[in-house]
């Protein structure tokens, strides 16, 4: 088996476990700047599956593709520290407000720009949008098959990939022809940690926009070591049609956003003593809550 050409889709997400009040903008889109940005958890599981294939099939290359604002280049550095070969940052104002369909179209256009591939690996679901729709939609846009809920990529032999899927109520072992898209479940093995040597080598890797205000010493460094450049792709580079991305390319519109609030209701406060518990049980029996 020759090496595989793998593209991993990884997304930088706001840490939704800590969403503050002022994190939403009036138009229904999210003010990501107000939240800590992290590597989407299941995308790390996806990266690990790719890294395992690289361990198994020498010559395999892993390319990260992330779509987001300039600071999403962090996802590419993090992936390279853990063993990915390179990455592209897909970034353009025109992508702002994209729903999953417009996002998938943009990602698929970028994948075609990057070149030929055998496998696209994504996470199952991002913890912000929470839809799990991008993987299958990218597959449809590329017109190739998909294997969702992957827990273990077992083997790739003669252009056939064998994958164990973890479903709600069971497991499936499936086989399909390359190229295809797989989406990786959170139950798959965790991602390996950073490799210290790679951190040393790539810690100055940056994208053009990140370098805008760098000193001349740094500019010299990038000229000397081209591997430190994180390439950026914009709408034009991908030849995507502008009307198909961003808000105009999104069939779904966010009409309204509400913050979840607890509604206080009148509650009876009881203590743990026998009288209180007995009177509650009697009440519940008499009003037929308990049979």
């Amino acid at each position: 088996m020759n090496g595989l050409r793998i593209i991993v889709l990884a997304k930088q997400v706001p840490d939704t476990r800590n969403v503050g009040k002022d994190a939403m903008k009036a138009d229904g889109t999210v003010n990501r700047a107000a939240l800590a940005a992290i590597y989407n958890p299941e995308d790390l599981n996806a990266l690990e599956q790719a890294l395992r294939l690289k361990d198994k099939y020498p010559g395999t290359t892993i390319t990260i593709l992330t779509m987001g604002p300039g600071r999403a280049a962090e996802i590419i550095r993090e992936s390279i520290y853990r063993g990915a070969d390179r990455g592209f940052l897909l970034t353009d104002r025109a992508f702002a407000g994209s729903d999953t369909l417009a996002t998938s179209y943009a990602l698929a256009s970028a994948i075609k720009t990057i070149g030929e591939f055998d496998l696209v690996v994504c996470g199952r679901q991002a913890i912000d949008g929470d839809t799990a729709q991008v993987g299958p939609q990218v597959a449809e846009k590329l017109n190739i098959p998909q294997i969702t809920y992957a827990e273990d990529v077992i083997s790739v032999v003669k252009n056939k990939i064998k994958v164990k899927r973890r479903l709600e109520r069971g497991v499936e072992l499936v086989e399909g022809p390359l190229p295809l898209v797989i989406t990786v479940n959170g139950t798959a093995p965790e991602c390996r940690p950073r490799n210290a040597k790679r951190v040393m080598k790539y810690k100055h890797a940056s994208s053009v926009s990140e370098r805008q205000n760098s000193s001349e010493d740094y500019i010299a460094l990038y000229n000397e070591r081209p591997y430190l450049n994180i390439p950026e792709l914009n709408l034009k580079d991908t030849k995507a049609v502008e009307a198909e991305v961003g808000l105009s390319g999104s069939p779904t519109k966010v009409k309204k956003i509400e913050n979840v609030v607890f509604q206080a209701k009148e509650s009876k406060v009881l203590s743990a003593n026998d009288e209180d518990i007995e009177s509650m049980m009697v009440e519940l029996i008499s009003n037929h809550t308990l049979g």
């Binding site: 969403v19 929470d130 519109k253 966010v254 509400e258 913050n259 979840v260």
Partner: peptide, 10 residues
Amino acid sequence: AFGGNIVATI
């Protein structure tokens, strides 16, 4: 969405 912190009407 957002880990259950908001409810959106789409």
